[in-house]
Nucleic acid binder design. Structure first.
Lengths: 198, 198
DNA sequence: CGGCGTTTTGAGAGAGCTCAACATCGGTGG
DNA sequence: CCACCGATGTTGAGCTCTCTCAAAACGCCG
């Protein structure tokens, strides 16, 4: 996952375990660096004085967290472990000096961010599709393998439902309907389109 | 908007006008650089052999486009003007050499990307909220001014509806209901929360 | 074999979407 | 100055679709 980090930065990473509910950082605190989620889930929230939370993001294993904090003096939201979790901290000073000393590292980081932007924009667009069927079609169209027919499924269908912003029931039904209509075939660990795209 | 660009890069920008339907670039073509949308709308799509489009993103005035292309030899999608449009091209070579020569520029670019990632993650989270009322509340909570009461409205309510992923009718009704319930006040160009958050 | 999570199917209700009609506002040209 | 026009804003009614709650079948692992 962390292919965007040079070896120098990687080895500077410091792991920290969090219990569910524990706070990783709070808004206004001085930024210490960039985090990577190793296991578990954290939620990023903005909290008002009354203690109400407005959810900004849920970060899961493999994601990076607080990228913007590298360039800001203080955090702009709270990060709280939703489950027991392990995170790895890459200290700000080390990362930034590495970026200066080593432009390829900086480029790799930029490239990673740019890819994320693209992926997130796509996901926002996906969520603009109201029909479950069309949303599934959109997902399949953008995730076919090289042959334009097979879509590998990572994780459970329940996970996929979450990624698509559908309830698992809705997804099961939609897939069943599409299979019945001959639009797709459901195979072990993958879905095959009856009509290849590419 | 383009505060993330150093003067050197800015002046290297080349404007180009596109008619509605005109193609800015196609998948597989060699990348020439990064674009900024000055006016109009472009859509980014993946097109299969049958000519069907899968929408990745709609870029509007003020946005940057194809950030990832700086780090890739070829484009991975098509960009097509949806309306008449004007874009500004920042040539790849100039931008990249500027990044190397001028680490602050590189940092500014990274910071801009990181902020975008945050904003997009937040938007995805927003779309996970099903109830129109709660979605509006989420938006208001995250867009109050310094006083925690006033939310400035940029553009029309119709635009806001689009940003929230609601039909304009649904938004009108929701705002009317919230105002009737005393939760908000609707003023010229802004909305005021009856109970400040911060 | 037993238990837990995933997958599947059922029924019902609610919420937003769609289509439609109308009001309002700002700008334009006669 | 006024009439017109287009876009925004507003309200109404009906419908579809997904969500929610429920229950059962299936599969995997200990």
């Amino acid at each position: 996952m962390a292919d965007w980090l040079s070896r120098n930065v990687r080895i500077a990473g410091v792991e920290r375990a969090l219990k569910a509910g524990e706070v990783l950082f709070r808004s206004e605190q001085r930024t210490v660096g960039l985090y990577e989620v190793i296991t578990g889930k954290l939620r990023l929230v903005r909290v008002d004085r009354a203690g109400r939370e407005a959810l900004l993001h849920v970060a899961v294993a493999g994601e990076t967290l607080a990228e913007a904090s590298l360039f800001a003096p203080a955090y702009h939201c709270d990060a709280i472990a939703t489950t027991n979790a392990v995170v790895r901290l890459y200290p700000k000073a080390i990362v930034l000096t590495e970026f200066e000393r080593n432009p390829e590292t900086a480029q790799a980081f930029m490239a990673m961010l740019a890819r994320q932007v693209m992926k997130l924009r796509t996901r926002v667009e996906q969520r603009n599709i109201h029909s479950a069927r069309d949303r599934v079609r959109h997902y399949l169209a953008l995730n076919t393998g090289a042959d334009g027919r097979n879509v590998k499924l990572t994780g459970t269908l329940k996970d996929l439902a979450g990624e698509l912003g559908l309830t698992h029931e809705a997804l099961y039904r939609t897939l069943a309907d599409m299979a019945a209509a001959g639009e797709i075939e459901r195979l072990k660990g993958k879905i095959r389109l009856s009509k290849p795209l590419a």
